[in-house]
Design a protein around this nucleic acid. Sequence first.
DNA 1: TTTTATTTTTAGTCTTATCTAATTTTATTA
DNA 2: TAATAAAATTAGATAAGACTAAAAATAAAA
Lengths: 219, 219
Amino acid sequence: MLTASEENYLKAIFHLAGKSKRPVSTNALASALQTKPASATDMIQRLSKKGLVSYHKYKGVTPTSGGNKLALQVIRKHRLWEVFLVQKLRFNWDEVHEVAEQLEHVESEQLIEQLDKFLGYPKYDPHGDPIPGADGSMAPLPSTTLAMLQPGDKCRVICARDSSSDFLLFLDKLHISLGAAIEVLDKFEYDGSFSIRVDEALPITLSSKAAENIYVEKT
Amino acid sequence: MLTASEENYLKAIFHLAGKSKRPVSTNALASALQTKPASATDMIQRLSKKGLVSYHKYKGVTPTSGGNKLALQVIRKHRLWEVFLVQKLRFNWDEVHEVAEQLEHVESEQLIEQLDKFLGYPKYDPHGDPIPGADGSMAPLPSTTLAMLQPGDKCRVICARDSSSDFLLFLDKLHISLGAAIEVLDKFEYDGSFSIRVDEALPITLSSKAAENIYVEKT
DNA sequence: TTTTATTTTTAGTCTTATCTAATTTTATTA
DNA sequence: TAATAAAATTAGATAAGACTAAAAATAAAA
């Protein structure tokens, strides 16, 4: 098993490498983790010895397929905990990161599978980032906004495009929370506003501006 | 703040001292934590320097009032997580300890207060141990069994007296889960059995033997 | 293509938390 | 009370993970 520190480095390397898998420089890694280049070199060599990253001195580091898999599992845990914190414990979308950063290192297969089930197998975290499955697969980035839907369509709220605290507060007032089930009842061509039903409640009206800022997945 | 290891030692000292607050021997502490006496001595001295335990060489160790408070906060977190795992993630009562042992060290005031709220401010964990409040106060040990109630009484399930897997499986079959709201409808003097309603469902019958093995708190 | 600047690595130190082996203190027993 | 056993402590070592300072490699500039 990996230590929390090893997991953090692995995750950072994964993120910095991006899908292009270009090598990550020691300095970039150190600054991403708020540490010193010498510490990064140390850890890179440790991860390399474990076969989780491919490393050539002075040339940067990339995850191996094994390292990739492990990084995705950590990201999966992080994002599931974020969903839990926002949906169940009513954290704000910008308060979850630090806590999820700790929770992601708790080690228990059963815990994470049951949590996933408890949350209803969410595909996106509160920031709209896709949650890797147990097998490492990920949904595409969200692309559908509420404004794109037609009367009769049903959907689930993924995240806000503009996650300013103003907008989040506005959504909260309307009881539009992450994961909420929304039904589009009507669309008024006059001003582009919508009549929608949130979680079986009474219909409300939503401006086109607001609708364009809510990412959803059709259901 | 304390490291996970410091919290574990503090918790163990607290438990071993019991409410009589008699000094804990180095050997007892080491064996409780599955470590060596030399390691325990080390940590005792570290905790002593921080003012969390009172220590006299060769004479054992006791928590100070400050150490007591911190130990209770860790125990609070541990037990709240146990409730979460059993009630929300459907863990069995004997599977929660290891995971709670990790979760208890996650550091976030907000997390634990929101979790407490989310769980409905439970007073007991799945083993029937009282959960310390944010101020360190604790409810008395459970003493009321379902069998002691009269028709018309309402209560909430705390834990099983006999937590054999047979009995827990039996409770699961009847949909009697931890925290379930039970209403006593009738008591049959002939064999001491009860007619009860669990969580607003249809009435079921429960033998006196079973009723005596379920600890409850009246509501 | 040298020189200079930047990046990366190495070497050596520190802290936490553990260990073994040796020593010291306390407890027990003859 | 002296000898022995048990418990506790100290000393010294190790590993993870961080640091600083110095050295080496690479990149950029003259």
